[in-house]
């Protein structure tokens, strides 16, 4: 099922929110790390895996989900969290390690959580698989009707956890979807160099799952296939692998020189926020000037959130020592 025009505009706005947030993070990140790059320096320390280029994968899938559904996001979680409707201010505060962040500074950018949004994340590759399948199992045991969705990259499919959990999801016929955002690179190792087959959705055969593939990085196409995926998962037939071809525009992490990516591949990179805007304008869903004002609105909203986060207080250092147990 294709999204209606109202949903398409919302998806576009959400993609822009994620993109502009990542743009601002990138700007602040580098500003504090110039001329000498020190990963520990500045307002935003640590690794940042930005979602530049993959925003379509988040909106096209998350917009199909309901409040009853569970999500585990990957080490690259910004676009997924924003598509789920988690407060941008709280996300930014967490990324800046502030006291009013999602986890009051205990988590950081790879560990975004929101109970209200049934949203978890994990920085270790493929380790969101088990929890998302467990959330699917719990939903079924409790008769709540929710499904579990795990987001990860194509390189995660080579982890043992991925295969163990896909098999269990197949054995138990869990209402579970694994969304693979295939950006072709696991840090510096290409998919061709790491993966024995061309399409990871073909692995569905091994796990009695439904395998779906979208090659366009287009939110409408993704939304359409995700609708099919959720209908299948909710029907009790078993798990789904939804493989999405996408692009990693800023490397594995900010500061990644990407010298290992062939020039011709970089030239072929597509920017889904530009492609989708052009599509919506060409189809008459929005006008060029409406697109401009949407972009201006989103920038204002995100800039305000950035200012809010910058002004927010750091946590009391003593908070490090509590919270391991209930």
């Amino acid at each position: 099922m294709l999204p209606d025009n109202e949903t398409r505009v919302k998806m576009y706005r959400t993609m822009l929110t994620s993109r502009h947030m990542d743009d601002r993070i990138m700007e602040l990140y580098y500003k504090d790390k110039t001329p000498v790059f020190d990963i520990a320096a500045g307002l935003i320390p640590g690794e940042i895996h930005s979602s530049h280029g993959q925003e379509a994968c988040a909106v096209g899938t998350v917009f199909v989900l309901g409040q009853e559904d569970w999500i585990t996001a990957a080490h690259r979680p910004h676009h997924t969290a924003i598509a789920r409707g988690i407060c941008v201010k709280k996300i930014l505060c967490e990324i800046m390690g502030k006291a009013n962040g999602l986890s009051a500074g205990r988590g950081g950018h790879m560990h975004l959580y929101s109970k209200e949004h049934k949203f978890c994340s994990s920085g270790i590759i493929a380790e969101g698989m088990g929890p998302a399948a467990g959330m699917a199992l719990a939903s079924r045991m409790q008769g709540k009707g929710g499904i579990g969705v795990c987001y990860l990259g194509e390189a995660a499919v080579n982890q043992g956890a991925w295969h163990e959990v896909m098999n269990m999801a197949g054995v138990y016929k869990l209402p579970f979807i694994c969304v693979i955002e295939d950006n072709n690179w696991g840090v510096s190792v290409s998919k061709a160099a790491s993966t024995a087959i061309a399409r990871n959705s073909d692995r569905a055969t091994s796990y009695n799952a439904l395998g779906l593939y979208v090659d366009s990085n287009d939110p409408d196409d993704i939304y359409n296939k995700m609708t099919e995926a959720t209908e299948y998962a909710r029907s009790g037939k078993g798990p789904v692998i939804l493989e999405l071809k996408t692009y990693r525009l800023q490397g594995h992490m900010l500061g990644d020189p990407q010298h290992y990516v062939p020039e011709e591949e970089k030239l072929a990179f597509r920017d889904c926020t530009i492609d989708y805007k052009n599509k919506l304008v060409n189809e008459g869903v929005i006008t060029e000037s409406e697109a401009d004002s949407i972009i201006a609105d989103i920038k204002n909203e995100v800039d305000e959130a950035v200012e809010f986060a910058i002004k927010s207080p750091l946590p009391d250092a003593q908070n490090a020592l509590t919270g391991n147990f209930v």
Partner: peptide, 15 residues
């Protein structure tokens, strides 16, 4: 790895 991860998710979701 699979079933301990799965149990973790089930626990998070109320089991």
């Amino acid at each position: 790895t699979g079933f301990i991860g799965l149990a973790t998710g089930a626990a998070i979701a109320g089991m």
